[in-house]
């Protein structure tokens, strides 16, 4: 199994290369898979921008990514600074095809600046690692977990995201190994 990592450029900018490398290492630590060095992916497609919401439609981004499927035995995780939504919800930190091939993570709401607070690189990196492991976990077929520290625990706000860890609990790790 191989995980491909792509950074998607958007009007908000491009995810920093050092952060992408930290995400790569986190994925390699958690999953039994080779994780390739991050490459620049396509730009976030313009039609995915919703002017009224000033956000990007995550399902449309996934659709665009899947136009170039990663191929058998590969999974693709894309990272963007664009703020994502699905039509039903006001925002999502990320979106994945459960047991599928592609997932996308947004850094927008992981950044302290979004909340009007001073920048904090370490906090942003920690949150990005958790969210990347979480969405990749979904690609490996994992559903939400109730263990407080497991990265697969559902976070619907930033406090919940900060409370959990960036690794999988023993149960989720075993399931991820089985599906690798």
């Amino acid at each position: 199994m191989e995980i491909l990592l792509e950074s998607l450029e958007s009007p908000e900018g491009e995810p920093p290369a050092e952060l992408m490398e930290e995400i790569r290492q986190a994925l390699e630590d958690v999953f039994v898979a080779r994780v390739a060095a991050a490459v620049r992916g396509p730009r976030v497609p313009e039609p995915s921008f919703d002017a009224a919401r000033r956000q990007y439609n995550a399902p449309l981004i996934l659709q665009k990514l899947l136009e170039r499927p990663p191929g058998a035995g590969r999974k693709l995780l894309a990272v963007t600074r664009a703020d994502l939504f699905i039509p039903m919800l006001s925002f999502v930190y990320g979106l994945a095809q459960l047991g599928g091939q592609a997932a996308v993570v947004s850094l927008a709401r992981l950044d302290q600046k979004y909340y009007g607070l001073p920048e904090n690189g370490a906090l942003l990196s920690g949150r990005a690692r958790k969210e990347a492991v979480h969405e990749t976990g979904h690609l490996f077929g994992l559903v939400h977990c109730e263990q407080p520290e497991c990265a697969m625990r559902l976070s619907t706000n930033i406090r919940q995201l900060d409370l959990k860890g960036d690794a999988l609990c023993a149960g989720c790790a075993a399931l991820a190994r089985e599906s690798a």
């Binding site: 439609n57 995550a58 399902p59 449309l60 699905i86 039509p87 039903m88 919800l89 999502v92 979106l95 994945a96 095809q97 459960l98 979904h138 559903v143 939400h144 559902l154």
Partner: peptide, 17 residues
């Protein structure tokens, strides 16, 4: 009736098991 609305909501709920 909007497919993207249906499918994205379904995908989000599936992540919950």
């Amino acid at each position: 009736d909007e497919e993207i609305m249906c499918e994205s909501m379904a995908a989000w709920l599936r992540e919950d098991g």
